[in-house]
């Protein structure tokens, strides 16, 4: 995997690339929830990748995909935060927004809370957080996630269950299990 400073710059590039795409196909995606065969993030990332694939920065697909999952998370969460901020009439707007951008999560607040919980999880178990980023924000399946993170399918499946259990506990109880 690339060095972390490279990665953060790459994430920025991807966020910039993803955002207009996101707006463009957002309308269709929002009605696409619930389709068992559609990985909405994959669709989005594929689209962006096809536009960026000739850039030397992303010549390595594994690196791209791992970065894309992170960028996707940032785009969605920034998006949610800025909507919330707009509604409140202030706050830190990360990206300029228009009113026609639809809601991606059932509620912006939930997505922001999830992002916070994921932040907490990152501090506790970075691998679990990485699995969540790939599986949930990247939309990759177990195999793809395993390949990107150097894990077996089996481990990814197990981590994914564990991570979701932890995140839900965090969201519901506000604290992690095993805390003293």
């Amino acid at each position: 995997m690339a060095h972390s400073d490279d990665t953060s710059e790459d994430v920025r590039v991807l966020v910039e690339a993803l955002y207009p795409q996101l707006r463009m196909i957002a309308g269709a995606l929002s009605s696409r929830f619930g389709s068992p065969e559609t990985l909405r993030s994959t669709a989005l990332i594929s689209e962006v990748f096809l536009k960026l694939r000739r850039s030397p920065r992303f010549a390595d697909e594994q690196h791209f995909l791992r970065t894309a999952a992170r960028a996707m998370r940032q785009v969605l969460v920034n998006h949610a935060r800025s909507r919330v901020a707009q509604r409140r009439g202030g706050g830190a707007v990360v990206l300029p927004l228009d009113d026609d951008v639809p809601v991606f999560w059932q509620s912006d607040a939930e997505l922001i809370a999830l992002d916070d919980a994921l932040g907490a999880l990152e501090g506790m178990d970075a691998r679990l957080a990485a699995v969540v980023e790939c599986r949930f924000f990247g939309g990759y399946d177990d195999q793809e996630t395993g390949r990107l993170l150097g894990l077996t399918d089996r481990t990814v499946r197990r981590d994914w269950v564990k991570a979701r259990a932890l995140l839900r506990t965090l969201l519901e109880d506000g604290e992690l299990p095993g805390a003293e």
């Binding site: 619930g34 259990a165 839900r168």
Partner: peptide, 26 residues
């Protein structure tokens, strides 16, 4: 607590593809 949380009601939580069946515009 953790073991129980693995087996109760995780099914729909954060499931990619399965989420949002109650999308507001349908």
């Amino acid at each position: 607590h953790f073991i129980d949380s693995l087996h109760s009601g995780l099914t729909g939580f954060m499931r990619t593809g399965a989420m949002g069946t109650d999308a507001p515009d349908r």
